[in-house]
Structure formats: structure tokens, C-alpha cells
Design a binder for these strands. Structure first.
Lengths: 204, 204
DNA sequence: CTTGCAAAGTTAGTGGTGCTAACTTATGTA
DNA sequence: TACATAAGTTAGCACCACTAACTTTGCAAG
């Protein structure tokens, strides 16, 4: 990350867009998606409060850029996790889930941004595409696991069921809704168990 | 709902607290939890923008009140749904899930308020308690289904797994993350299937 | 090399917001 | 009937999103 304290040498910043995204990422984690302000992000990047609007049309667009960058990281993390296990194995499925959970826990603010209904989120084809890219990772793993093509209805349905579980677990965890209700003994075991029970496979 | 247009007769409103909560419920559904403002809620209730602070210490407290009221409704809905089916049956479990989903879909704004990490949400014992009350409905049903006491670790673990699925499905639905990825053919079938596969019961 | 233009900064300003302080009015109780 | 208190009011502060108009800079064409 570049230095935010020393004043920049030139009138033009040169890297403001990227630096704003970085600043927003930090703010969203420390103050929550609501507590963040465009003005504060600009302050952190060392520019005036109007400068961000040269790069982003409004606040939601800035947040969407952060979400977009987050989805790239999520996709890569899931892909990498899957590739560390035999294709189509339960371990691969569970690892994808674990990557998803790790992503949520390590950056709950960005996770909420990615999966919340931020303004204009649902009608941005660019984001839709990235979302589909993430789901495709799961889809491929499930397809291999049950020996069917990725567009098979059963594959889609099973992949979705897995997704709901992991997604729900993420939100319940980061929103602290499990306190006093259920303390999970071992997350990896949980992920493995739901994978097997939903895919209906006993092992490997 | 009382009339919001005609000016009130007396200086004292008489029912401002309840009316503010009602106004916030509406606003949160139409403009989202972020788009809502205390000032607008006050306007709708026909009072000055400072009036709400006589009843709620700050914005988060007002939102928490709405969440609290929402949790009551959710609990009642789940309880009622369960009671329409034989105790401990798969149908009862699925019905609880269906009530949860219906609640989310019919009021996504309040749902997000209830299950999001609104400021101070996690350190409000009153809300914690109501959350536990909701989970207890699931816990009882699962306990009956597998013939174990409600504090049994397996019961807790199975109930949590079910919760994650339904919770995840709710968020993915209201946040429109399923578009172009998976169109669910029949929700009740989905709920029944995950119930059976997670509880490991074949029928009844 | 100059000139001009577009990109990317700036300041200043508007209207809305959360919240507080100080004031006013109504109400229930001694 | 007096009065403390609950529940309204207006005025005002600091902050925010965003816009308009201006300025600086880098680049590219002549």
C-alpha cells in the first residue's frame, strides 16, 4: 500500500481510484458499510472531498467497485482451495466452503458489500457476471462429484443447497447470531458433514 | 394504522413511539435500511425532527426497536407454522423454515434489520433473548424429531445446520443473488429435502 | 516548441441528516 | 390549585453527498 501520510508530489494523484478503493476497504471493515463515508475515504487518500466524484459517479458506484474487487478475490480463493484437493472430492467441496467462510470472516465488511443489496447492485451486469463466476466454481466441483454435466438440474440444485448452508453460516457468524445458541466445535467437520449429507455421498 | 395526514388535535401526540416504529417499518421496506432517516420517519408521523429523540436515544435504538418487534412476529409465525403439523414431523420442520422464508420475503428490510449487525445489536441482552426464543422453536422441533432432549449436542448441531440453509436461502433470495444462477422449482420441496437430508430421516 | 484540450484536481456552496440545548405546553398527582 | 415531569417545539452545530465553477497538469497535434 502506498504512503497516505506524506503529501503527494504532483497536483495529479496518479493512483487515486485504487487508493480510494483501498481506503474504503479499511473503513468498511472498521466502521461497517453504513459508518463509511466518501468524505472520510477522500481524507485518507489525501485529497479533497470532491475528488472521488471524478472517478465514481456516486457513493454506491464506489461501493460497487469495492464489491467487484472483493468478488475477484473470493473467486480466486475458492478456485485455489478447490485445486488443492482431488477434483470432485468431498474435501474439495468442503475446501471451497472453507475459503468462502474465511473470506467472510477475514473481511466481513466487504463480504456484506458483496452479498448485500447495495444500491444498483442487482442491475449491474458486470457484477452479475462475477457472481456467476463464483457460483461456477461450486458448480464445477459438484458436477465432478456426482458425475453429471454442470448444467444438470440436480447439480444446480445440490450446488445451491450447499451454497445456502455456507452462506447462512457466514452471515450468522459475522453478525454474531450464534452467541449463546450454538458454538460450533469444528468448522471443517461441519463443512464436510453438510457436503456429504447434501451430495448424498458417503466418502471420497 | 392511524391517519398520518390530518393534524393531531392535541400538543401531545399520545402514540408517537408506536407510530414511529410503523413509519420506520415502511421506510425500511421501501428505501432499504440505509435509505431510511429518522427525520423522514418523524415527518411521516407528523412531528418535528427532534421529537423521536424523546422516545429513542439515537437512530440505532429506533432501529433496534423495529428489529425487536420483528423478532416477535417471526417467533410467532414459526411457532404457529410448527403447530399446524404433527410435532417433530419433517413437515413441521419444513413449515418452520417456510415461515422464516415468508417472513424474509414479505419484509426484507425488517429481516435485514433483525439479522444484520445494526449498531449495538450484539450487546443488547433483550434482543439476544428474543433471538434465543426464535432458535428455541427450531430446537424443540428438531429435538422431538430425533427423540433427544433440546440441549443434546446433536440436536443443537442439526438445528444449526438447518438454520444456516434456510437463513442463507433467505439472504440469497432477498438480495437477488440467484438471478441467472439457479431458479428454484419448488421451495417447499427444497425445504423438505434439506430437512430430511440434514436430519437423516427418510420419512414422516 | 507551442498551443490547446481533456483529465483530474481544487474551493465554495446547497440541502439533508443525526443529535443537542433551551424553551414551551400539557398532564397527572399531592 | 401548584408543580414536576413527560413530550412536544425551534434553533443550531457538525457532518455528509453531491454539484458547479474554477485551476492545474499532462499529452498530443500542428
Amino acid at each position: 500500500m502506498s504512503d497516505l501520510t506524506t503529501p503527494r508530489s504532483s497536483y495529479h494523484h496518479g493512483d487515486l481510484r485504487a487508493q480510494l478503493i483501498a481506503a474504503v476497504r479499511e473503513l468498511v471493515e472498521t466502521h461497517g458499510p453504513d459508518g463509511f463515508s466518501v468524505a472520510e475515504a477522500a481524507r485518507r487518500a489525501g485529497v479533497s472531498s470532491a475528488a472521488p466524484y471524478k472517478h465514481f459517479k456516486d457513493r454506491p458506484e464506489l461501493l460497487r467497485a469495492v464489491a467487484s474487487e472483493g468478488m475477484d478475490r473470493l473467486r480466486d480463493a475458492m478456485q485455489a482451495a478447490a485445486s488443492r484437493h482431488p477434483a470432485g472430492s468431498i474435501a474439495a467441496i468442503a475446501a471451497i466452503g472453507q475459503a468462502y467462510v474465511d473470506f467472510a470472516r477475514s473481511g466481513p465488511g466487504v463480504f456484506r458489500l458483496v452479498f448485500g443489496l447495495t444500491e444498483g447492485h442487482d442491475q449491474d451486469p458486470h457484477l452479475e457476471e462475477k457472481g456467476a463466476g463464483c457460483f461456477a466454481v461450486v458448480l464445477r466441483a459438484v458436477a465432478t462429484a456426482i458425475g453429471q454435466p454442470a448444467d444438470n438440474p440436480t447439480v444446480k440444485s445440490r450446488a445451491y443447497a450447499l451454497w445456502t448452508c455456507v452462506h447462512g453460516h457466514c452471515f450468522l457468524t459475522i453478525d454474531r447470531k450464534t452467541k449463546g445458541k450454538f458454538e460450533m466445535p469444528d468448522e471443517w467437520t461441519f463443512l464436510t458433514e453438510i457436503s456429504t449429507s447434501i451430495l448424498g455421498v458417503s466418502s471420497t
